[in-house]
Simulated scan of single mutants.
Amino acid sequence: MLPVRRPRLLIRLFRAATSSVLATAISQVTLIGLLWWGAIPALASAVAFVAGAIPNFFLSRRWAWGRRGTPPVKSELMPYFGVIALTGLASVGLTTLAGWLTEPLNLSGLVRIIVLDTVFLSGYAIVFIMKFALLDRLVFRHETRTREARSKT
């Protein structure tokens, strides 16, 4: 059986960006909904980040990096959670900071949501390249097959 080859860097980048856009859309719906219902920015952005991070792992793992089967905990899941935690802290931190900075301005509900959402999206854009590099070079760097693929041979 021939070894599974990883897609080239630009293809992986495009695919990771596409899956990240989907995850961002999920996060956006979650963030805006929670802010609309009156959640504090720190809680809303944290829940929104997690809501997008979970499907993003499975989609990007399969599509961008060509991994199948059960993800190994030690070599993929734990490093992924580490990378995601760092990028999540950046997004949540920026949104929380924006919440604190806009609090004295007494912005109306919709304007405040737009400001916080813009900051949340900016945080995603800023950390995407860093996240991609860490995932590509740290989490999914090995060309080893997953457990499911190994068990079939």
Rank of each mutant, 00 (worst) to 15 (best):
R15M: 02
R15A: 00
T18G: 03
S19F: 02
S19D: 00
V21G: 14
L22N: 00
I26V: 15
I26R: 04
S27P: 14
S27Q: 04
Q28G: 01
Q28H: 03
T30K: 06
L31Y: 01
W36T: 12
W36G: 02
W37G: 13
W37N: 08
A42V: 07
L43P: 00
A44C: 04
A44L: 02
S45Q: 07
A46S: 12
A48M: 12
V50T: 05
V50D: 04
G52Q: 03
P55T: 11
P55S: 01
P55R: 07
N56R: 06
N56W: 08
F57C: 07
L59I: 09
L59T: 11
R61I: 14
A64L: 13
A64E: 05
A64G: 14
W65P: 02
R68K: 14
R68A: 15
G69S: 11
P71W: 03
V73M: 15
V73C: 05
V73S: 10
K74G: 15
S75M: 06
L77V: 12
M78N: 11
M78L: 15
F81N: 09
F81Q: 08
V83E: 09
L89V: 13
L89T: 06
A90R: 07
S91Y: 02
V92M: 02
T95S: 07
T96W: 06
T96E: 04
T96V: 05
T96S: 10
A98T: 02
G99M: 00
W100D: 02
W100N: 10
L101Q: 13
T102K: 02
E103I: 08
E103T: 04
P104N: 13
P104F: 09
L105G: 08
N106H: 14
N106W: 11
S108H: 15
S108E: 15
G109D: 10
G109W: 05
L110A: 14
V111N: 09
R112D: 07
R112G: 00
R112H: 04
R112Q: 10
I113D: 01
I113C: 05
I113N: 00
V115N: 09
L116K: 09
L116S: 05
D117V: 08
T118Q: 07
T118C: 06
F120K: 01
L121T: 12
S122E: 11
V127E: 07
F128M: 14
K131N: 14
K131E: 13
A133L: 15
A133D: 06
L134M: 13
